[in-house]
């Protein structure tokens, strides 16, 4: 899967045209603050309108100029990236704020090592990951809590 292909550029261009036109419309319909008797040239929607129009024009050029890249696809793993992204997002959006920060961090770090460090034997990996997770959570949490006086989530 390549995200710099001509097809991807065309789809992006369509999204950007929609975004630009939405911004143009939002700027045009934005409150002009007549009740506050502001100068008509200083309405809050002025620059959003200009940017929306500009973005739509650029997106049209992007659509017309889309072409496939010449270089070969890089040696990469989408599966690893998606798994890492999903696990990290779950930590940031679900675990933090729900569980105490130390617990959430220890689970996340230990889980990450267990999932992605495939060089070690399973049992050894699990033990090492748990120890590392607890240590990382303790050190980072204590650093922010006691050295930088941050109230942890």
């Amino acid at each position: 899967m390549r995200l710099d292909s001509a097809r991807a550029d065309r789809i992006t261009a369509i999204v950007l045209v929609a975004l630009g036109l939405t911004m143009l419309w939002a700027g045009y319909t934005m409150d002009r603050l007549e009740i506050r008797r502001i100068h008509p040239s200083s309405i809050p929607g002025l620059l959003p309108m200009i940017l929306g129009g500009g973005m739509a024009i650029c997106a049209v050029f992007l659509y017309l100029g889309a072409r496939d890249p010449d270089d070969p696809p890089p040696d990469a793993s989408w599966r690893t990236m998606l798994l890492a992204g999903a696990w990290s997002a779950a930590f940031a959006l679900l675990l933090v704020g729900t569980l105490p920060f130390y617990v959430a961090t220890a689970i996340y770090v230990a889980g990450f090592v267990m999932i992605f460090d495939t060089d070690m034997a399973p049992l050894k990996r699990a033990v090492a990951a748990c120890i590392f997770g607890i240590l990382a959570a303790g050190i980072i949490g204590a650093l922010f809590r006691y050295a930088f006086l941050v109230r942890l989530p």
Binding site: A84, A92, T105, Y108, F112, V113, F116, I140, V150, L152
Partner: peptide, 19 residues
């Protein structure tokens, strides 16, 4: 190894802006 470094980096990315 990246499997050990990246989670620590991400934890800092989370707690840094929150701080």
């Amino acid at each position: 190894p990246r499997a050990w470094l990246m989670p620590v980096v991400f934890v800092l990315c989370v707690i840094g802006p929150y701080a």
